[in-house]
Structure formats: structure tokens, C-alpha cells
Amino acid sequence: MTVPPPPPPPPAPKGNGPLLVGLIGGFLALCLLGVCGVAVVGVVATKNGRKGSPRVVAGSTYSPPEAVPATTPAPPPPPPAPARIGQCIGVDTGGNFLGIGNCNGTSGTYQVVSVDYDQRACADPGAPYITVTGYRLCLEHHLVRFFCYKFPKEEGWVVHAPKCKAKGTVHVIDIVPGASNSAGCTRDRKWNRWYRFTHPTVVYCVMQY
């Protein structure tokens, strides 16, 4: 009786070495193509058990926007000046502004020499001035021959006489700039009094009524 040969031994199990080598080689190939980061993110996402977009772990470059500095609103423009340099104005006996007149003697007894919204001192510290709508108007006397005015008794403002030759009015006969007395007054016309003003210095030779 013939004995059958024993069955062949089972095939030896294949090792995981070639598989690991293949995975490592594939991973290195992905890194060379610049996509290994995507694979790592996918691994992290899978490890964390999340689906969809991976969680941002670190490396944020976010910074809050810079605060816009507060700006101070521009101041409102100044109101229009009540008069211009060179114009003649009228005032009352208290120095209150009566408006722009003219320089020919019919209205306006002071001429404007400066207009300053900052109300700084006049170039001539002793010059008369008034303040109107925030402006300082520095002035000088502007009287005209043969017109009538009312002079202050001491300090005060020269104003137009409402009626010439009325009591207390003066009729200007001559004007002598820079004089200190009546020596320069005219001898061709009659006058009975003289007045000297400063800022600027001038002598008025007048007929006083």
C-alpha cells in the first residue's frame, strides 16, 4: 500500500515592509510636489475626528485695524469785516460804530488804518480804536476843511455836527499836520480857536460857536 506524500506547507505570510516602503516613498513624492502640507492637514483632521475644514491650531497673523485719529473740526470762518483799510467810518460820542461813511467830509470822522480779527494792539499804541463784530479797527482822525463837527471837551470822539454853526460846534478852517501850536494856521480866513490831536499829530484851526 502506497502512502501519499504529506501536503505542501502553507505559503509564508508576506511582510509589511514593502507596504511601508511604498507609503513612505509616496509621502516623499507628495512633499516634492509641494502638497505634503495638505496630506498632513488631512491626517490631523482625520486624527481629530473632524470633517470639513481643518482647525487652525497656531500661526495666526491677524491684527486689529489701527484706530483712526480723531480730527478737530476746523473753526468757522470769521464774519465779514465791518470796514476795510482806508475807508472812513462814523461813530457816536461813545465810540459806537455807525457804519461806513466817506472821506469827503459829509460823513465819517475816522479813517481805518488796520483791521484785525485777532484784536491785536494797534501799530500806534495810542491810536483810537473800536471793536466791531470781533474785529479791532485801528483809526485816525479824518476831518475836512470847511465842514462842521463836535469836538469832545477833553477825551472822547469827534462826531459830525447835525447843524453847522450850532452852539458847541466847530467849523474847520485850516488843518496843519505835525504842528504843535497855531503858528501854522492860515491868516487868510478868520478862526478863533485851535485844537491839537495826536496819533497822528495835527492841529485844527477852527471857528468855534
Rank of each mutant, 00 (worst) to 15 (best):
I100N: 10
R189L: 07
L139P: 04
Y149R: 10
T169W: 01
Q111A: 09
V132T: 10
A183P: 01
F197Q: 07
D188W: 08
A123P: 06
V176T: 04
W191D: 05
Y204N: 05
V158L: 09
R136P: 09
F151N: 08
P77I: 03
R189P: 02
T93A: 15
S107H: 00
T106Q: 13
A127W: 07
A123H: 06
I85A: 14
Q87N: 08
G134P: 09
F151C: 01
T72K: 15
G134C: 09
V206H: 00
E66I: 03
T198V: 14
A70P: 12
G94I: 01
C205G: 01
C148D: 09
I100R: 11
R187Y: 13
R136T: 06
S114N: 14
T72G: 04
D174E: 02
I100D: 02
P76N: 13
F197K: 08
I173M: 11
S114H: 06
Y195S: 00
D92C: 02
Y129D: 06
V132R: 12
R145E: 08
A81E: 08
V132Q: 14
P200A: 04
T133A: 15
D174F: 02
P69R: 10
W194K: 01
F151E: 08
Y117E: 13
D92Q: 01
L137N: 12
C164Q: 07
A83V: 04
W191K: 06
P65T: 00
S182L: 00
I175G: 01
G178N: 13
T106F: 14
Y204T: 05
I173A: 02
P73M: 05
V113L: 11
F146M: 11
A70L: 15
T72F: 06
A67G: 14
G95C: 09
G101T: 14
V206G: 03
G126D: 07
C88G: 03
E66D: 11
F151G: 01
C103F: 08
V206A: 00
S182C: 09
D116S: 09
Y135I: 00
G101N: 11
S180E: 11
C205T: 00
I100L: 12
P152Y: 03
T169Y: 03
S180H: 08
F97D: 01
A127Y: 08
G90R: 07
N181K: 02
P125C: 11
N192D: 06
S182Y: 02
V115S: 03
V170D: 05
F197C: 02
A161F: 05
F147R: 15
Q87R: 05
T71A: 11
D188K: 12
E140M: 08
P79G: 13
P79F: 07
T133N: 14
P79V: 11
V113M: 06
G105L: 03
A81G: 07
D124F: 05
I85C: 06
Y129N: 12
G126P: 03
G86R: 09
N104Y: 10
N104H: 02
Y195A: 00
D188N: 13
K150A: 14
Y117Q: 14
S63V: 14
I89Q: 03
C148H: 01
T169R: 04
L137W: 13
I173V: 15
A127Q: 07
H171M: 10
